[in-house]
């Protein structure tokens, strides 16, 4: 079809205000999606729980009565609404108080990993040469060292180091270990998509205009290379929460007496076949809900911010 006069052609559907800014348009579209609203409510709910646990329970999670061991859920209003675990600790109190270390750890680890991975991957893919050699070989070294071996090494290194008992101190060691062994995937993905994006004509055009490397990387390469990372993040959060439980066995997880969802899942898994599936299902449900909500939110946000899908 011959091109209509360029000035009057309107390729978009009528009725859509295309001249609105990208951010405003994204916000308007997100507000209209029920799955986004539900996911947002779930995320906010757990965030509030992590920030203000006493709003949800007045029971001390560390007050455990061994005689009340494995009390089945009693329903709202009772002493133990969600029952108790093997040691007689209140499940609700543990879930509520366990949300803070779990979520904090997940966001700190994933945030730091993404930051390191994206930065190194971008530099390696853009400059290649020796930068790429150093980054790629480092990635491979970290990939072949088993996580548990490295965790044990760190454990012995930090054995006599005293860390405090604040919210960050509790998760310091697991955050360190998991970040150290969590950034390689992002670096690889970003390096690969940087290699692809940097040879596109619009990057060449920017270079011909005299744009600096920094501008090209930030404005042109990164926005078009970050896609795979956004898909990895929600599942990585679930991975971190469960990996923390493994580390807890080695004594470098969330420091006792603090509790986390990961520890609760591991402990509860032993009793699923023994007639007490709720010990696993409550913490697992919280984890799945959080991750699902993040997946939906992340997906919707990515779509809303992609101008091609407007």
């Amino acid at each position: 079809m011959p091109e209509p006069t360029a000035a009057t052609a309107t390729p978009d559907a009528p009725g859509i205000d295309v001249s609105a800014s990208l951010g405003g348009d994204a916000w308007r579209r997100l507000r209209r999606r029920p799955d986004v609203i539900v996911s947002a409510v779930v995320v906010v709910f757990f965030a509030v729980m992590a920030a203000f646990p006493t709003l949800f329970t007045s029971t001390d999670p560390q007050r455990c009565v061994i005689g009340d061991s494995k009390t089945r859920p009693q329903g709202l209003g009772a002493t133990h609404p969600l029952g108790t675990d093997v040691h007689g600790c209140d499940m609700l109190a543990q879930l509520v108080h366990g949300s803070r270390p779990s979520l904090l750890l997940a966001f700190v680890v994933v945030g730091a990993s993404v930051l390191i991975g994206v930065l190194l991957g971008l530099l390696a893919g853009y400059y290649l040469g020796w930068v790429d050699t150093v980054v790629s070989r480092t990635v491979e070294v970290f990939l072949v060292v088993p996580l548990l071996l490295a965790a044990l090494l760190l454990l012995s290194l930090f054995r006599n180091v005293h860390v405090g008992s604040g919210a960050f101190d509790v998760i310091l060691l697991p955050a360190l270990v998991l970040t150290l062994f969590g950034w390689m995937g992002y670096a690889r993905y970003v390096r690969a998509s940087t290699l692809e994006a940097k040879n596109l004509d619009y990057v060449t055009a920017a270079r011909a205009l005299g744009a600096s490397d920094l501008r090209i990387m930030v404005r042109h390469v990164l926005p078009n290379a970050i896609g795979p990372v956004t898909a990895l993040v929600p599942t990585a959060i679930a991975g971190v929460i469960s990996a923390e439980a493994v580390l807890a066995f080695l004594g470098i997880g969330v420091r006792p007496p603090a509790i986390s969802w990961g520890i609760m899942i591991t402990n509860g898994a032993e009793w699923v076949t023994g007639g007490y599936p709720y010990l696993l299902l409550f913490p697992l449900g919280c984890l799945i809900l959080t991750v699902l909500a993040l997946v939906v939110l992340g997906d919707a946000l990515r779509d809303a911010l992609d101008p091609r899908l407007r």
């Binding site: 596109l200 004509d201 619009y202 060449t204 055009a205 404005r219 042109h220 926005p223 078009n224 992609d306 101008p307 091609r308």
Partner: peptide, 12 residues
């Protein structure tokens, strides 16, 4: 450029 589909940054 030759290809008008790759010569413009789709996110700008």
């Amino acid at each position: 450029f030759q290809d008008p589909y790759t010569s413009l940054n789709p996110r700008m």
